[in-house]
């Protein structure tokens, strides 16, 4: 259909907050991040699938992942490569740390100016914050249109994209010029599985830091021979930016207080499942006019 596109997927490695086990909280009441597995943010996988669909319909296109996080976040780039992405950039630097959504969006948008994509695809929101802010904030920083809650791409031409989006009470189909930012809803198709051949091909894909840490002659040679195994790693000095707008100093929102959730106990009456006790429960509910 359309011309070859430079597609970027914004992805985030997140703690799996959906599987919070008993050891997820430390004795002092803080969150034990180490006990939570780090996963590919679920809706970013929906986004990756849409990006791969676009790539297939526009031959010659490339899909690259842009993620910001600690060095281990390179995992999501490899994971995406196993599923069909061509490569990616890890944005990592201590100066990015402590960023709220706005400072995150600023850093991402500066990196995106360097990558110059035609279309940016992101998950609607990440499960660790559920804010859904970064997609629209990036779009605004770039001055590009946004289409949020995308469920299906209906059509893509050299200059335009037609997208069906899911609203809380219905669906809307919109046509947006490119470049633009698309955020993908969890109701969009799931991402394809990892492909065994691609896993074999890309399992040694590494960032420069990972190569350095591994100190492995063979790996070094592999990555030297096969440029597609090199995952880019950018720090603050690799993107043109105002450092004041990064990390903690670039974040208008500050966390004043964190409170662990302890449900407040109140007097509760205990009942067993016996017929007699259930009966007296219902009688009591009727007597208190809770049940009419």
């Amino acid at each position: 259909m359309g011309k070859a596109l430079n597609i970027v997927v914004l992805a985030k490695q997140v703690p799996d907050t959906r599987n919070v086990g008993k050891d997820a909280m430390k004795a002092d009441g803080t969150v034990n991040r180490a006990a939570l597995p780090a996963i590919f943010n679920p809706e970013d996988l929906n986004a990756l699938e849409q990006a791969l669909i676009i790539k297939e319909s526009c031959p010659g296109s490339t899909v690259r992942i842009l993620t910001m996080g600690p060095p281990r976040a390179a995992d999501v780039i490899r994971d995406a490569m196993f599923r069909g992405a061509d490569g990616g950039v890890l944005l990592t630097d201590r100066k990015f740390a402590g960023a709220d959504t706005l400072a995150t969006s600023y850093a991402l948008s500066r990196a995106l100016l360097k990558i110059k994509p035609d279309i940016i695809v992101a998950g609607r929101q990440a499960i660790d914050g559920d804010t859904a802010q970064v997609g629209p904030q990036v779009a605004e920083k770039l001055g590009w249109p946004q289409v949020t809650y995308a469920e299906q791409i209906e059509k893509i031409t050299d200059t335009e994209i037609v997208v069906k989006r899911r609203l809380e009470h219905g669906v809307e189909t919109v046509c947006s010029p490119m470049p633009m930012v698309l955020t993908v809803n969890g109701s969009a198709p799931e991402c394809r599985m990892k492909n065994a051949k691609r896993v074999m091909k890309f399992k040694n894909a590494k960032t420069p830091s990972e190569l350095n840490e591994a100190q492995d002659e063979y790996l070094n040679m592999e990555c030297c021979k096969k440029p597609y195994l090199n995952i880019s790693e950018w720090g603050v000095s690799d993107i043109e930016c105002d450092e004041q707008q990064l990390g903690l100093s670039g974040s208008p929102t500050k966390v004043k207080q964190i409170e662990n959730v302890v449900l407040q106990a109140k007097e509760s009456k205990q009942y067993s499942a016996s017929e007699g006790e259930i009966n007296s429960l219902m009688v009591e509910l009727i007597a208190s006019h809770t049940l009419g």
Binding site: L263, Q264, A265, K266, E267, S268, K269, Q270, Y271, S272, A273, E275, E277, I278, N279, L281, M282, V283, E284, L285, I286, L291, G292
Partner: peptide, 28 residues
Amino acid sequence: INKLADYAVTGDLLDVIPKMINAYKANS
């Protein structure tokens, strides 16, 4: 959830719910 509950029934809902339905019908 029981910390928040005014009434906490300990049992299997597959067993408890039918009993609640019967008790409600009998008493309302």
